[in-house]
């Protein structure tokens, strides 16, 4: 068990009703890595995360966390085994306060895990806003809260979906600094992004998904320097910009 990978997704096939969305998707995340899954809208990025979490269970294939099979478990069981989730659009409980959002996710751990107090130390702004309804926070504040909410569950692996969506560029840069810092402190992150160049900067490895197939795997910095290749892999024409 100890030499099993943190996350090992093997040949999963996921469907929405009759439409076949993910085709034999395989990927893995090692302890202490940020791994990016790149792809265009509708390529299957979010579905991959939902498959891991059990929100949209794959029909075939395996999803293992430290060697333990997750496929077939209910989402709350997957979460309790150590998978944190920072969803696309942040999905605040918007009528609940910042503190209540954190309390809903808090799960105690032995030793020096994340507590609401530690999240407040890391994001002092959240402490200031503790009593405010989360629906009334700015986009950047909500993203911080979404990350804090994942952290207080003390996950082994955090799934982060399109964190830069709808945020001002300066906030996005701060956000990525936060992700990098969390990794240095030992967090492992599977990141889904359209903002390819920025995501590759903080990642060690990258996958590219297109139309439900993994079409590229490799080191993040190689891919970051090969922009024509990113265009090709993501199905963009020469004259199209890489989404950033």
């Amino acid at each position: 068990m100890s030499d099993a990978r943190l996350l090992e997704v093997e040949r999963i096939n996921t469907y929405y009703g009759k439409s076949h969305i993910l085709h034999d998707v395989s990927l893995h995340v090692e302890q202490g890595e940020i791994v990016t899954l790149l792809g265009l809208n509708g390529a299957g990025k979010t579905t991959t995360l939902r498959s891991i979490l059990g929100l949209t269970p794959p029909r075939t294939g395996t999803v293992k966390l430290n060697g333990r099979e997750l496929r077939g478990l209910a989402p709350h069981a997957v979460a309790r085994l150590g998978v944190g989730y920072v969803p696309e659009g942040r999905r605040m409980f918007k009528n609940l306060s910042v503190l209540e959002n954190l309390q809903l996710a808090e799960r105690g751990t032995v030793g020096d895990g994340w507590t609401i107090g530690r999240v407040y130390d890391r994001f002092p702004k959240l402490k200031e806003l503790a009593g405010r309804k989360s629906g009334r926070l700015s986009g950047g504040e909500q993203e911080m809260l979404a990350i804090g909410r994942a952290l207080v569950g003390n996950p082994k692996l955090i799934l982060v979906d399109e964190p830069s969506q709808g945020l001002a560029p300066i906030i996005v840069i701060e956000l990525y600094k936060t992700l990098e810092e969390l990794r240095r402190q030992g967090a492992s992150i599977l990141l889904v992004e359209q903002n390819a160049l920025l995501a590759l900067k903080v990642s060690q490895r990258a996958y590219v998904i297109d139309d439900g197939h993994i079409v590229h795997t490799g080191a993040a910095d190689e891919l970051a320097h090969d922009q024509p290749r990113i265009r090709g892999l993501m199905g963009l024409r020469e004259d199209e910009d890489i989404p950033a």
Binding site: P75, A79, F93, G153
Partner: peptide
């Protein structure tokens, strides 16, 4: 109160 707003998200945070 959280589940009324987004039960799926609550499940993803570990609530049965």
């Amino acid at each position: 109160r959280g589940a009324v707003q987004d039960a799926e998200m609550l499940a993803a945070l570990g609530t049965n």
